[in-house]
Design a protein around this nucleic acid. Structure first.
Lengths: 222, 222
DNA sequence: ACCTGAACACCGTTCAAGT
DNA sequence: ACCTGAACACCGTTCAAGT
């Protein structure tokens, strides 16, 4: 029914590389709104208003709001920096991880969609392929490459989302202490000094990547 | 304003261990609805109807819909099996991981909330403390325990959500092939035989846990 | 082909009113 | 104290109508 138009938009988008096209304009407006006011500020009416249209004028270019959100994850993945094939595999994986994290910093409200919506788009598979290449070069056995790719990307994405979403934050120290009073937390008690210190998420991510690359190597060497 | 009542509910809930109380009943209804019809079927009106009330009757017991959702993640965490302290640290971490994954299987629609909403509740901190204990016993340096805990729980949670949310699924092979035609995917091509095979998520999770425990050990030994 | 306006069946939440 | 009914300001989406 609307397959013809959707296909036309898809091929046009692929050809023009993100330029022109109402659909691109719509996705851009939705991304801007989410960056400014959060995910739930993405409303058909709000998106339309931002480009001077009425909500119902979006439907020829976007099958539904769900389709719009799927288009948004496509945009995100296209923003991911593709690693330079000349670099050694270790640097490529690290660059990819950093790029994902930078993406989350630019679009904190939208990245969680990457975890919740399946991404079988060409952009997504291109990223996966470059990770496969790096893992093969590292010496990961053919039978293990897909598993290790899922492991690495799950962690990197999860870290970026957790960091930006506040899952790593301890909350206000005062009410935290009040809430936990009377609960036995032996390990917290033992580690109290270190848990009070503030954390550099930059440094922690780099340390995690070190460990993760070590894990890749250990899988590679059997 | 409503702090008095909220506090009363909290202490009552802690004392009665999940039994009785309108708030518990409301959270139970919401969880049932999400299990049966998905996260967005959780509606103030729907939750109220399930326990024979009108939507506005929920507000004395639940500050807002957001508060209801936060209460829901509390319920989830309370369902997580606490590991037996008599077991060796390795078994405890593995049991915790399996338990998180089983939780995701029971409540696939709700687990993503664990990643998106901060969990500073007593239940959450109890889980974290048991992970700290295991890591300390493994010999992870005090300065590294918190980082490694975040790494492990980020991966385990991310895996469970990805598995149940379909992020790991390749999609229909026919349309996948159609969509990817003409794109250069050298590593996919090289791995074609292994990528066609169907994956056991049970087995993959166990293999991932093996690698993760190896990582913990390597951090422990310095 | 693309867009508009009105309308439908919903939302979360507030407020006055009941008991 | 707890609940109801009506109402407000929104949603996504459909449909008939315009050009």
């Amino acid at each position: 029914m609307d397959g013809a138009r959707a296909d036309a938009e898809l091929t046009a988008g692929a050809g023009a590389a993100g330029a022109g096209g109402r659909r691109e304009q719509i996705l851009g407006a939705a991304l801007d709104i989410a960056d400014e006011r959060g995910l739930e500020a993405i409303t058909m009416r709000a998106v339309a208003a931002r480009i001077g249209l009425t909500a119902m004028a979006l439907y020829p270019h976007v099958k539904s709001k769900d389709d719009l959100l799927d288009g948004l994850v496509g945009r995100l993945l296209a923003e991911l920096a593709r690693p330079d094939p000349a670099q050694p595999w270790r640097d490529r994986l690290r660059a990819l991880g950093r790029s994902a994290r930078e993406l989350a910093h630019r679009h904190p409200a939208v990245v969680p969609l990457l975890f919740v919506r399946p991404a079988i788009t060409p952009e997504a598979v291109l990223v996966v392929d470059s990770i496969y290449q790096a893992l093969l070069e590292a010496g990961v056995p053919d039978t293990e490459v897909a598993r290790v790719e899922r492991m690495v990307s799950t962690f990197v994405l999860g870290y970026a989302i957790s960091e930006m979403g506040g899952r790593f934050d301890a909350g206000d120290p005062r009410e935290r202490r009040a809430l936990l009073q009377g609960i036995e937390l032996p390990a917290h008690h033992k580690l109290a000094d270190h848990l009070e210190a503030s954390v550099s998420w930059d440094a922690e991510f780099e340390a995690d990547m070190d460990d993760l690359l070590g894990l890749v190597e250990s899988v590679a060497s059997g």
